[in-house]
């Protein structure tokens, strides 16, 4: 089914109880908040075509340390708001004097949003077996509004990407994607992510990405000079 495109302020429904995400109610009628696509199940939702990441509780995000203070790391999480990771939320118990040995400025980590206060103070945590600091692979940025596309319906897209490229991929809700694997495979994943991002709202996307991934890229000469340079540096 073709999803309908709406603009901000567009009328959606007379039934205010159907107002979902991305909509607002004015005088009992539902209108769109965003320039985006409508989906209607129990509620009418509007998914914006673009926009910044807004942290919400229990999101898994990838952040980069930008500042260290006494007992806190401050992380850039690709959002208007910085995330704070307290020393007590690190994956194991460490002394505040050794913080830099575990996470220094510029290091990246997979973290979970523990709490977001109304004044948008973002508390992060690493106390979960999935969460850890990033020591290898590459981090790639996509538009946060395209994250659900990269994951796919119940993870179909992401598991296909993983299977076809033998890479491990972690998608942060904030639009950072962490890819580990062989360098050539990572290049392939990133090209695939480019396709997903660019064609996010088209029909048959999973099929097209699948075709792209199955192409025999191992023997194909690298066409982009950028990739050649990158590979040289990495070899």
């Amino acid at each position: 089914m073709e999803k309908k495109i709406v603009i901000p302020g567009e009328f959606l429904s007379d039934n205010s109880s159907k107002a979902g995400d991305g909509t607002y109610v004015h005088e009992g009628k539902v209108y769109s908040k965003f320039f985006g696509l409508v989906s209607e199940r129990d509620k009418i939702q509007v998914v914006s075509l673009s926009g910044k990441y807004l942290p919400s509780i229990s999101d898994i995000v990838i952040g980069t340390v930008v500042e260290i203070s006494y007992s806190n790391w401050f992380l850039d999480i690709n959002s208007p708001y910085e995330g704070r990771l307290n020393i007590s939320e690190f994956s194991r118990r460490i002394e505040s004097g050794n913080m830099m040995e575990y996470l220094n400025i510029g290091d990246s980590v997979v973290v979970m949003v523990k709490e977001v206060t109304p004044s948008m103070k973002v508390e992060l945590t690493m106390r979960n077996h999935k969460l850890r600091s990033i020591t290898n692979g590459r981090i790639f940025e996509i538009s946060p509004s395209k994250v659900p596309r990269v994951i796919g319906r119940s993870g179909s897209m992401i598991s296909m990407l993983k299977k076809e490229t033998n890479c491990d991929i972690v998608v942060g809700q904030n639009g950072f994607v962490w890819v580990t694997g062989k360098e050539k495979d990572i290049d392939h994943v990133i090209e695939g992510l480019h396709i997903i991002e660019k064609e996010a709202h088209t029909k048959g996307l999973t099929d097209r990405v699948s075709v792209f991934l199955k192409e025999d890229y191992e023997d194909k000469p690298v066409d982009s000079t950028n990739l050649e340079i990158l590979n040289e540096l990495l070899d």
Partner: peptide
């Protein structure tokens, strides 16, 4: 603009996050 740090790979880990 955000800089995406490129980190050299030396080992592969497996993980699933959705």
């Amino acid at each position: 603009d955000e800089d995406n740090p490129a980190i050299v790979s030396d080992e592969t880990e497996d993980d699933t996050l959705e």
